[in-house]
Computed example of a mutant assay.
Amino acid sequence: MSVELDLGALAVWMRSAGESVVGELTGRRVGQGQSNLTYRIDDEAGHSWIARRPPLGKLLASAHDVAREYRIMSALRGSGVPVPPTIGVCTDVGVADVPVFVMAHVEGTVVDDEETARALTPDVRRRLGLDLARTLAKIHAVDIDAVGLGDLASRKPYAPRQLKRWARQLEESRTQDRPDLDALTELLRENIPEPDEIALVHGDFHVRNVIIDEATGGIRAVLDWELSTLGDPLADMGSALAYWTQAGDMPGGMFAASTLDGFPTRAEMAAEYLRASGRSGQALGFWHVLGVWKVAIIAEGVYRRVLDEPENAAGVTLTPENIQALVDHGWDVAKENGLVT
C-alpha cells in the first residue's frame, strides 16, 4: 500500500523535533486497523518510528484526533501504563493535509492475525490474555488529575454519553436499516446502571492494540488511544470482552485467534481484571452488551468508509453479514446477562 505522507518533508520535521534521522526515510502501512492509518517509518541507519494520520475520505466529527491521542500518550509516560515514547504532532501541510502523530517504534509482536497467535505457546497465550486484564487495571488506576488528564472529557455519567455518541455515529455512518441494532440501543437505554467512579477509559482495548513480548506474553506497549475518554472503568472491560472471541461463538468477522488453546475465557479475563482492580463486577454485563453494540457500530462505520474510499481497506474484509452476526451476538450477551428474557 502507498504511504499517504511526504517522507522527505517528514524527515525535515523529525530532525527539527530532535530526532536523529539518517538519510532518507522509507515507510509502509502496518496493522489491521481501519481507523487512523498507521505506518512504520525507517531511516537508512535502521532507526524506526511509527506515524499515524487520520483515514482518507469523509471523517466523522471528533473521530481520528491524533493530536488528542498524542496528548494522552504523553501524559501516561511514567504512570505505570506501558506506552511508546512520543515525538510530536506534525502539522506541516507539506507532509500531509492532516496532522500526523509520530512516536517511537517499540520492538515486539502485535498479535493481529491467526498465524501470529499460533506461533505463541499455549502458556504464552494464557499469560497474554491475563496480562491484558491486568494492564487494563493499570490504566484505570491512573490518577487522571495528577497526570494532567482531568479535563480530557466530561465527568458526567458515562453510559448516557456513550449511548448518545455512538447512536449518533451510527446515524452518520449507517449503510442500511438495522432495526435489531436500533432495538439493542433501546434495550441499553432502559438498563443504564448507576454511575460508578470516573477513570481514564482507553475506549478500544483489545489484543490487536498492544505490543507484546513474544517469549513471555507480557505487554510492552498499549496503542491506539484515539477513543480514550473519562468514564466508567467497567466500560473498558466490557469492550475487551466484546472483542474476545471464544470457542462456540458465532462467526462475526471478529478476530477469532483467541479461540486457540491456552487463551483464557472471557470469564477468566473478567475475574482477573476484577481481582487486579478490586472492583465489583455487578454492572459488567451491561457494559459487555454495550461493548458488542459499539463494536457493531464501529464495524458499520468501517464498512461505510471502505464503501466511500476503498483505499481505507487494510486487508480485513467486512460484509453486511459480519455486522449482522455482531448484532446477533449482542442480543445473545444481553440474554446471558439477564438484560432480556
Rank of each mutant, 00 (worst) to 15 (best):
R174C: 14
G129N: 08
C90P: 03
I192G: 10
A137F: 01
T185M: 14
M73H: 05
E194H: 02
E190C: 13
Q162G: 07
I198Y: 06
C90S: 09
A75P: 05
G80Y: 05
L188K: 03
E190W: 11
L132I: 11
G108K: 02
R155N: 01
H202G: 14
V83D: 09
H140D: 00
L128C: 02
Q169L: 11
A141E: 07
T175L: 10
D92V: 08
V111T: 07
R68E: 11
A146Q: 12
T91Q: 05
H202P: 01
K138F: 03
A137L: 00
A75T: 02
D145G: 06
V207I: 15
E186P: 02
E172H: 15
R161T: 15
H202W: 07
R155A: 06
I198V: 13
T121L: 04
L200T: 00
D182W: 08
S173R: 06
R71I: 13
C90W: 00
A67T: 15
V81F: 10
E171V: 03
P179S: 14
V111E: 04
V106N: 08
V106R: 03
L184K: 04
G94H: 14
A183K: 11
K164P: 04
I139S: 00
G80A: 11
L170Q: 02
V210P: 09
K138P: 09
A75R: 02
E194D: 09
A117I: 06
R134F: 02
A199S: 14
L188Q: 04
Q169S: 08
Q169G: 02
T135C: 14
H105A: 15
V106Y: 11
E172P: 15
E172V: 15
L132Q: 06
D196R: 15
Q176V: 09
G150T: 14
L136H: 00
P99E: 02
R174E: 10
V201K: 14
E197I: 10
Q162C: 12
V102N: 04
I139E: 00
G94Q: 08
T116G: 02
N191S: 13
Y70W: 13
F205H: 08
L181M: 05
R165K: 12
E190A: 12
T91Y: 01
V95W: 00
A183W: 10
H206N: 09
V89D: 04
V95G: 05
A146D: 03
V98N: 03
P82F: 02
L136A: 01
P82V: 00
D151C: 08
V106L: 13
A141G: 07
A199L: 05
W166V: 10
A159G: 01
V147L: 04
I87L: 15
A117C: 05
T109D: 00
P160N: 10
C90V: 14
D151N: 09
D180W: 09
D196M: 10
I211C: 07
P99W: 00
V95K: 04
C90A: 02
D180F: 07
D196A: 14
L130D: 11
K138C: 11
Y158H: 14
H206Y: 13
F205T: 06
A199M: 11
A96C: 06
A159D: 05
E107Q: 09
T109Y: 05
A67Q: 15
D196V: 01
I211A: 08
P82N: 03
V111L: 08
D145F: 12
T91A: 10
S74G: 12
A137Q: 03
P85M: 09
D204A: 06
Q162M: 12
